[in-house]
């Protein structure tokens, strides 16, 4: 029992570290593709946490990645922090709902990517009082589908290669 708890805890810590690393890697080296679209590699870690550990752990990984990612980049509590927090909050909530209804990983990933963009746009609209930014919504949401498929496929590939943990 204690061994199991320790193993889960270690896995959670590793996934959080992976999420933060991917988040920073993406923002520093990869950057936005096609103008303003981000791949969302860090979502792979969230998806893995969701399937490996559970819903609560997924929320922890997502929250930690936003907080520590922006802390390391020095953007905490700036507008970019709030934008990314809005996206992550919405996408995490929707992914939790998806998991509750036992959706497939790929679908959860796509919906997570879409709602992430949507949440970000909502926060930008509120923060800058610019409802016109909604013009980019169809472009962003449409672009989120391929990135969601990509992260979903990667997460699935990783999950089939590692030993599953007993789910509490």
């Amino acid at each position: 029992m204690t061994i199991e708890r320790t193993r889960r805890f270690t896995t959670l810590a590793m996934l959080t570290a992976i999420a933060i690393t991917l988040n920073i890697l993406e923002s520093v080296w990869i950057g936005p593709v096609f103008g303003m679209l981000r791949i969302g590699l860090a979502n792979i870690a969230s998806l893995m946490a969701l399937k490996l550990l559970g819903r609560r752990e997924m929320a922890i990984v997502s929250a930690m990645r936003v907080i520590f990612g922006s802390l390391i980049r020095g953007t905490i509590f700036s507008s970019t922090f709030w934008i990314s927090a809005g996206g992550v909050t919405l996408s995490s909530l929707v992914m939790l709902v998806c998991d509750y209804f036992e959706s497939t990983l790929l679908f959860t990933s796509i919906i997570g990517a879409i709602t992430h963009s949507f949440g970000q746009v909502l926060v930008v609209m509120a923060l800058y009082a610019q409802p016109g930014i909604a013009a980019v919504l169809p472009y962003l949401l449409g672009g989120s589908i391929p990135t969601g498929i990509l992260t979903g496929i990667v997460a699935k590939g990783v999950l089939t290669r590692i030993k599953p943990l007993p789910r509490q």
Binding site: T104, I111, I114, L137, L141
Partner: peptide, 24 residues
């Protein structure tokens, strides 16, 4: 993916297209 998920995904894409058309 399940059938129900395809339906939801297609609905999201359709809403997306409709929204952009209405917007422009």
């Amino acid at each position: 993916m399940k059938k129900r998920e395809w339906i939801i995904l297609l609905a999201v894409i359709a809403a997306c297209l409709l929204g952009s058309v209405l917007f422009y």
